[in-house]
Structure formats: structure tokens, C-alpha cells
Design a protein around this nucleic acid. Structure first.
Lengths: 349, 349
DNA sequence: CTGAAAGCGCTAACAA
DNA sequence: TTGTTAGCGCTTTCAG
């Protein structure tokens, strides 16, 4: 009934509590005979140890926390999947927290980790997060932390990222090669480091080709769908019309495509589009979408793997671990050069 | 430093442990003055209570578990989001477990809940799950359970589902109205109740129109992508070619669309397609996809809300709660009748 | 209004 | 090889 504990087993078997405890842990101190008896009764009575008693005593929760801005997004879903897979292998439990791109929420959530609730933390910060004191705080409590994807540069902690500058550069270059001369970058946040790197890659590619541009070529989108629709409609109807777009985040593709359809803007003839995206359906979109695809699942796995290195080896520091994985540019129809038909999709790198 | 506990506060303030404990809980027994002092020191020392000590003592974890087959899927992502939102409101923590459609894993995961780790469980079973003893077991441990989407009929527990029969019927009817006479249903599992209801709706719609069909009109897909590609290629090249497809699950759409492109099968002219799907990009696919869309986010919220009713009111039973939410049929280009252009999408019900 | 004390269920010294 | 015992940090009677 759940209320069967180690004491009940001990009583039933005429053994001491500690003997039972050790037997259940398969301790070498206990005779094979006794172990058998204990195990038999345990399974018979459907005994299951109370994890919190154990956590309290051992100061170990066997639980990790994953804090992400969003889950209904291919990147984060895949990352969580990677994390969960490793955690399951290691016998750990995974607490998932969503921040909804809200810094206050993120801060409040991290408060919960200063007290032994989790043995480690994996986090990808919100687009509002500039201050990182809340993360340092968690660090001060000696819980190992791995930042992934949306990291904070200044923090001296383990970081798993992708080659954002290079992949953004490559995508921009690809649009330029296709004949674009007025490309706009759709950004999600002014403060996100990862976003800035992507923007830098974008700008560098333009500079390298001596294409003129200014701040207005960077469009700051919001987290609100309606706002974005207005913003994007304005962008696509303004005088200085874009002939190319790089979307810094997957969720902007739906409104962009919809608006183009509405306004009869032809992709890729009138407008070429590439997006950072992990959507599995990019290649069956109309037209199929050129994407910069991050190895989300692998990032999750790697982040978790590094975290467990710190958790398992006490005192071992992972603070300088700094993996940069490579994204892949999948070239598809949405960026096909003029007068060409269907491009087969392929991996650029 | 995390090792600051209630005892340290008490010592510092020359108060007893219990007074401090009560003060922190804002108990009416404690003077305003004392409360102030306690709170002040607590914040100053960055005190945070140990959740597991509290859980152990109160036999309450303030944690719920969500067990789902998959997370890189729009339906489950959205459902998790709904659940997490409610949990956050209530101040609960959410443990997420993925079963990867593996019954053994599911069983092992549920084992963990017989001991107070969680105060409640939300589960959508794997496509392999036929036996439900593991779920009844968890129930016997008095932890409230809400089954959602992929439920097990036989279990007398709270269930949140959608009108699978009706929506499948409506989708099939829609294909028939569009002129299909040889529709195939792509199924994920022979044992899943939800799947069977969808199949029944499908069959009923065919029967009602006196369309002949047999078991071969139900194609059992696997969880392996490669297997499915072969299966679907075979289906689309066989003599008895389908002129309509209903996909019982979102992830089959990518291979179906790809194969059609490869084989130059025109959608919707040669083949009309409708799919159960929560993908946000259905309407920008090529061609845009007719979907039966479940209210995934709302289902998650409702499932969590019902769970909390049971958690919060001790002894209150939710076992007979049985909400059936309505899916929406979004009619789009992939099922457009011959010679018609673009259909605006609308809600059929 | 405050405090003493028992104990949630388990672990780990230490003793026997 | 087994048992005794002292907590982990908190909550909650019950006394004062």
C-alpha cells in the first residue's frame, strides 16, 4: 500500500533495519542467504523505497532540472528528448520548467534549486535575460550547471552551443549568391548572445560583399504572434522591400509564409527565405524551406552528459567545458536562384 | 551556501526551531514582531527550505509526473505545455518521463511512483500498452491518476480524450465527398484504444456510403522511420492504389509527402490526404494539409486541473471524470476536390 | 505566543 | 555478518 517501509520488512524478517537496508543495496557485508530473504519479501510486499528519505539522508536527489523558454518548438523538444534519454540511462529524474521567455519566471524557478531539490541544472535562458545573477546564485550553491544554446557568455560555466556566427554567415552568403541585395534578418531579442552572434555572421557576410545595410535590416520581432504579423506585414509592404530574409527562429516562418501567400509575394522569385529551424517538415513546405538546422538532440545529450560528469565525480569541474557543435545548412526551394527549378536539398558543410 | 537550515536561523535569533518553522509558514500563532525578524534573517542568509525534508515529513511531494511516449511531437509538446502551466500556477513541480513507445519502459517508470515521489500522475500510454496492471498498481498506492489522449478504456480512472470516432468519421466523409473511393487509414498501433476509435469512425463512414473495404485498407505503421518509408512506398505503388489517405498520427505526413513528391503523385489530384496533427505549419505545407487538430494545450490544462482537484481535496475521487474535448477539422488544399482551387480552412464542427 | 520533543524513512558510522 | 544508534531538515502535536 505504499506505507510498507524498511522497518516493516525488518520486523517481518526479524532483522535489523540496517541489515535490510544493506541487503537491499546488495552490500557485500550481508550474507547471500539474508539478501535472498529480504529481496523475496520486498518483492512480495511490493516494497519501494521512499526517495525523499533517501535524498534527505544522502543529500542527493537523483534529479536534474531542465529550464527552457518553450517546449512547443522543435529545437527545445529535441533537446529535452536528448536530455531525458541520458537521464533515463543514468537513473535520474528530470524536472522540466518553462519560462515562457519571462525573466522573472526564470529567476523564480532558479530560486527553487538552492536547497537540494536537484543535483544539476541545464538551462537555456529567456530572450529577456541580461542579468545572470540568478544563475550565479545557483552556482554558488554548488549545483553543477550546463548552459546550452542560449547561453550567457560572461558566465564561466559549461556551455554547449552551435556555430551561430558561421552558419548565419553561410546562410547569408548563400542568399547573396542567389542574387539578393537587400536581406533582412528577423531577430528575436536584442539581448540574447546567440542572437547577436547570428546577427554578426549576417552583417559580416554583407560587409564581405560590400552590400550596404543599416540597423533597419535587423527586425526585432516579439513573442506575440499578432505583433509579429503586423511587423512582418509592414516589412513586406514597405518601400524598401526585402528580397531576402533570414529568420533567427523557427516560429517566424509560419507568419512569413502566410503573409507572402496573402500578399502574393512569390518565394523564392520575389523573396528568398532561410530560417534557423529544426522543424521536421521544412522540406515539405510550400516551397520547401532552406534551413540552418542545429543538432538539437545531440546538444541535449551532450549537455546532459557533461552535467553528469560533474554530478558523478565530486569536485570535478566542468566550468571550462565549451562544446561548439555544427549546424547544417539545408538548401531547399525557398532560396533557389532565379530561373532555376527545384533544388535538391543537401548538406552544405 | 545551501547548508543554512532552519536550525541555523533559530540559533542566530535565539528562538526555537519550531517557532522559526511556524514563522516561515506565517502561522497565526507567531507574533508579528517575531515573524519579521525571522523573515529578515531568512532573506539575509538566503535561506531556502529543504524540499525533501518537508516532503518526507508531510508525505507530500508537491510534484507531479507526466509520462508520454514522445516529446518531439506537436501534440505532446502542447499537452506538456498546458500541464506545466497549471502546475506552475499551483506551485507544483513537473517530472517528465518519455517512454519512447516502449511498454517495458513505461512499466519501469511507473514503478517509481509507488513511494511518494509524486502526488499525482498524468499519462498517455505507449502504442504497445495492452496490459494496464502497472497503472492500476500506481492507483492502488493512492496516487491520483489522469489518463489523457491515449487512455485505456477498461481502467476506471479520470480520462481526457477527444472525439476520435466523430472526427475520424468527419474526415473520412470529407474525403468521400471529395470523390475518393479507395481510402487507406494509416494506423500506429493495433492495441491503442484511441486508434481503434479512429479506425471505427473511418470504417463507419465508409459503410455509411456503401464503400467496400477490407483489412488491407488499414495500414499498420511502425515506430521506425525506415520501415515506414518502405511500407508507404509499397502502399503508394501497389496495384490497388489509394486515392485518399487518413494519417492517424502527425509524424507519418513527412514520409507520405516526400514519397508522393518522389513518385510524382499529385496531391490532391491523385491522392487526397488528411491527418491527425497539431503541427503549426500544416497550412504552409505544399500543398497545405487538411488536419484533424486536437485541442492539445487545453487537454493538458484540463488533465492537470482535474488532477489537482484530486490532489488538493483529500478523499475526493475523480475516477469517473471523463471529459471528451472536440477536435477541429481544418480543411485545406490536400483534400481539395478535383478542379477546385484553394479552400479556406474552417472549423467543421 | 514560544518551545520541547517525536518522528517522517532511510543511511552510515560504529559496535558487537 | 548483523545490530545499534544518530541523524538528514522539517513539521506538528502538546506543554508551557
Amino acid at each position: 500500500m505504499g506505507n510498507i517501509n524498511i522497518r516493516a520488512l525488518a520486523k517481518e524478517l526479524n532483522l535489523s533495519i540496517s541489515t535490510v537496508s544493506k541487503a537491499l543495496k546488495d552490500s557485500y557485508e550481508i550474507s547471500v542467504e539474508t539478501k535472498k530473504r529480504v529481496l523475496a519479501l520486498a518483492t512480495e510486499l511490493n516494497y519501494s523505497p521512499n526517495p525523499y528519505a533517501s535524498s534527505l539522508r544522502r543529500k542527493k536527489s537523483n534529479t536534474i532540472a531542465v529550464v527552457v523558454p518553450e517546449v512547443a518548438d522543435s529545437f527545445f523538444s529535441l533537446a529535452i528528448k536528448g536530455i531525458e534519454e541520458i537521464a533515463q540511462e543514468k537513473g535520474y529524474h528530470v524536472l522540466v520548467y518553462l519560462t515562457y521567455e519571462n525573466y522573472i519566471k526564470e529567476k523564480k524557478i532558479l530560486e527553487e534549486f538552492k536547497n537540494g531539490r536537484v543535483d544539476g541544472l541545464l538551462i537555456s535562458v529567456t530572450s529577456e535575460t541580461t542579468d545572470s545573477a540568478h544563475i550565479s546564485d545557483a552556482d554558488l550553491n554548488n549545483i553543477p550547471i550546463v548552459l546550452f544554446d542560449r547561453v550567457i557568455e560572461e558566465l564561466e560555466m559549461a556551455k554547449i552551443t552551435t556555430n551561430d556566427f558561421e552558419s548565419s554567415y553561410a546562410a547569408t552568403r548563400h542568399l547573396l549568391d542567389g542574387g539578393c541585395i537587400n536581406i533582412f534578418y528577423l531577430s528575436i531579442s536584442k539581448c540574447l548572445g546567440i542572437n547577436n552572434k547570428r546577427i554578426e555572421g549576417f552583417i559580416q557576410a554583407l560587409s564581405d560583399r560590400n552590400i550596404k545595410f543599416d540597423d533597419s535590416n535587423i527586425v526585432n520581432c516579439s513573442n506575440d504572434i499578432n505583433d509579429n504579423e503586423h511587423l512582418l506585414t509592414a516589412l513586406l509592404t514597405q518601400n524598401n522591400k526585402p528580397d531576402g530574409i533570414i529568420a533567427g527562429v523557427e516560429k517566424l516562418i509560419t507568419p512569413v509564409y502566410s503573409i507572402c501567400k496573402q500578399l502574393h509575394i512569390k518565394i523564392p522569385e520575389d523573396l528568398k527565405i532561410a530560417s534557423f529551424s529544426n522543424s521536421p517538415v521544412a522540406h515539405i513546405l510550400n516551397p520547401s524551406l532552406t534551413t540552418i538546422t542545429q543538432p538539437a538532440f545531440e546538444m541535449g545529450k551532450m549537455a546532459a552528459t557533461i552535467l553528469f560528469k560533474a554530478i558523478e565525480k565530486k569536485g570535478y569541474t566542468i566550468k571550462s567545458e565549451n562544446a561548439v557543435l555544427r549546424s547544417t545548412l539545408f538548401i531547399r526551394e525557398s532560396t533557389a536562384p532565379a530561373a532555376t527549378g527545384l533544388c535538391p536539398s543537401f548538406d552544405l558543410f
